[in-house]
Amino acid sequence: MNRPAQLSGSITSAATPAQTALRRRGKLSRRDTRVAAALLLPALLCVVGLIGYPMYLVVSMSFREGLGINFMNPSSSRFGLKNYCAVLSDPATWHSTMITLIYTAGSILPAFMIGLGLAVLLNQHFPGRRVMRGLAMLPWAVPSVLTSIAFLWLLDASYGVVNYLLRLSGLVTHDIAWFSASQTALLAVTLPTIWKSFPFFTLTFLAAMQGIPAELYEAAKIDRANRWERFRYITWPGVRGPAVLALVLNSLWAFREFDIIFVTTGGGPARATETLGIRAYLDAFSYFKVGEAAVLGMLMLALALIFVLLARRPLKKEFF
């Protein structure tokens, strides 16, 4: 009769150190959690302060109605949905959205192709390769404003070298006002963006190509694979992952591009280059419609989010 009691007593006495250890571990783990939280706190505060608070301000401003620009006291205006109704029902918003998408695709796809082509060339062995690699990166380092000014001069209607060469070659008989004609302005603002964007692609592809073992190419040559086949079955699979990432990043940068368009055309002529970013800027700082500008900001955020969600699948496939 005593046995079970003894047994239970022995179990109890045997379990006690384990339970104590578990309890101690639990205590330790709680302590660790607290330490971890304390260590994370500065980063969390930074995220809240630098991302969360501005985001809250944008959302808050988007609901403030009426003309007015006062960042220090946005709550002085009436709260309502009028800004959303005004912006989302305005055909100009959807025109700007379309211009933004065309501009993003029109600048990123050519930059991608040029970047890839140049990376393939710069991956070959030839004298002066290092210098050429350095030069290819140069446009990326040039500030957007300087790039814009250079292209303004190159494409100047009356005195620009591009028109001069076109006239000289007989391709055109009259001057083309690249930045001030509605038909050509979007193309004109896309060119400096391409020029500035392609080095990032080149850099990414080149770095990825360096990691492809040379033996694969040698084996392919032995198997009589031609250049295209070597690119198709060896190079491309090797650079595909970084390519997707570079494409996503560059698209997001181009999507919110402001400097080049603002300096060259300011969104004109007649809204031909008025992207969502430019329109938000004009609404806020020229027309003092901060609420509507904030709604445009929210729209841009939503579009960027949709794009990132769409890009998640290929990114996941390549990296995770």
């Binding site: 004109g268 002529p269 007649a270």
Partner: peptide
């Protein structure tokens, strides 16, 4: 009070005047 927006719209029409 809305001069900036008015002048911007006039500028847009001005570009049509020049380019079309």
């Amino acid at each position: 009070a809305n001069f900036n927006q008015i002048s911007q719209l006039v500028a847009e029409a001005g570009m049509r005047l020049i380019n079309s």
